[in-house]
Simulated scan of single mutants.
Amino acid sequence: MPESIPSDTKDTPTPSENTAKTRQLLGMKGAAPGETSVWKIHLQLMKPITWIPLIWGVVCGAASSGEYTWTLENVLKAATCMLLSGPLLTGYTQTINDYYDREIDAINEPYRPIPSGAISLTRVITQIFVLLISGVALAYVLDLWTGHEFPTVTALAALGTFLAYIYSAPPLKLKQNGWLGNYALGASYIALPWCAGHALFGELNWKIVVLTVVYSLAGLGIAVVNDFKSVEGDRQLGLKSLPVMFGVQTAAWICVIMIDVFQAAIAGYLIYINEKIYAVILLLLVIPQITFQEMYFLRDPLNNDVKYQASAQPFLVLGMLVAGLAIGHAGIH
C-alpha cells in the first residue's frame, strides 16, 4: 500500500505556489490571488521589483558627479537617496497608478490587490499620501544635509510626483498616449534619480540634465515593454499604448530600436568627450542586449516580456553606470 502523507506536510505550499506568492509580493506579472496579510498587500501595491532601476539611477548619478568618495557619510547619504527614489517615490508612483488603473487591472490582472478586493480604497489612498509626504520630506532633509542653497533634490522629488500623478490620473492621464506616457515613465526611471544622485555629490548642470533626458529615450523603450501585458484592457478602455496603436509586432520593434539607438547615441557622445574606452564598453554591452531582443522579445513579445526584461535589462543598467563613470572621469560636473 502507498505510504500516507505526513499530516505536517499536507498544507505545505508547492514550489509553484511559493513562486506565485513571491511574484505577487514583488508586484510582478503572473502572480496569484489569496494574500491575506494587509502589510504584504501594501507592499505589493508598491511593486518592489520596480524600485531597482531608480536605486541604480542614484548610483549612476553619484558616479557621474566625479566627487563621490567612500566615506560613511556619503554611503548613508546615497542610501537615503535610494530610499527616497525607490520605496517612497516609486512606491507612491506604483500605488497611485494602481488606484487609477483599477478598471483596467480588473480586465488584465484581476489578482491585483485593488480589483481583487484584497484592500480597501481608503487604505490605498492613505498609502498614497503617506508615501508622498514622506518622500518630499526626506528629499528636503537631503537638501539640508548636503547644504544646497536651492533645494534641488526637493524640486526633483516634486517634479517626479507631479509626473506620476499626471501619468496616471485624469484629465491628462499621460499613459493614454503611448509616446508621452512612456517617455514620462522613462524620464522618471532614468533622469530624475540620476540627477538626484549627481546633485548630492556634485553640481547639477544643464549638460547632465540634457544627457539624462536623452538617455531617457532609451528608457521609453523599456517602458513600452510593460504595455504588452495589458493590451486587451488598454484596447477595451481606449488607451493608446504603442501595442494598441501599431500592433504588437511593430511596437516590439519600436521598443528595441529606441533602446539600442539611444544607447549607441550615448556611446557616440562618450567618444566626443574623448572617453573612448568607456564608449567601447557601452557598445559591447549592447551586443548581448540585441541578442536577447531577437531571441525572446521580437519572437513573442506577449509571452516573453518578463523573460526578456530579466535577460536584457541588466545590460542596459550596466551601460548606464559605464556612462556615469565616463562622465565623472571626464569632469563634466
Rank of each mutant, 00 (worst) to 15 (best):
K229P: 06
L211Q: 09
A279S: 09
M1G: 12
T291G: 13
C195M: 13
F292A: 06
G66V: 00
A187S: 04
L211A: 08
V306T: 14
V59Q: 09
R23K: 15
I5G: 12
Q249E: 15
A169N: 08
L318W: 05
M295E: 15
E17D: 11
L54T: 10
S134W: 02
V286W: 03
C255A: 03
P15V: 00
L84F: 03
S311H: 07
K207M: 10
K240W: 06
A265K: 03
L302K: 15
G178Y: 02
F297R: 04
N18M: 10
Y140R: 12
H148L: 04
I273Q: 11
S37P: 13
Y167F: 03
F201D: 08
G66H: 09
A252W: 04
A279R: 04
I273R: 05
S7Q: 14
P193R: 01
I290S: 09
N205V: 04
V58I: 12
A78Q: 11
G66K: 07
V38P: 14
A252M: 01
V210D: 10
V261K: 04
N205A: 08
G91S: 05
Y111F: 12
V213F: 05
G328F: 05
I266K: 06
Q127W: 05
A252H: 00
M258C: 11
L121K: 13
L217V: 13
T69S: 11
D234C: 04
V136Q: 09
G319V: 03
L270H: 06
T9H: 12
G61T: 05
A279P: 14
S65I: 00
Y296N: 10
Y269E: 11
V280C: 04
P288C: 02
C60I: 06
N74S: 13
E35W: 00
V75F: 14
Q289I: 00
N182L: 01
A265C: 08
G181D: 08
P48L: 00
K21S: 14
L185S: 09
C195L: 04
E3N: 10
F162N: 15
V153E: 15
A169E: 10
H329W: 09
G181C: 00
V231I: 08
Q94L: 13
R102G: 07
Q293M: 10
K47W: 03
A155M: 14
V130N: 07
S116Y: 07
K40A: 09
N18W: 11
Q24M: 11
L200D: 09
R23V: 02
Y167I: 02
L211E: 09
V306E: 13
L180D: 06
G61H: 08
T71R: 07
A223V: 00
F246A: 04
L89D: 11
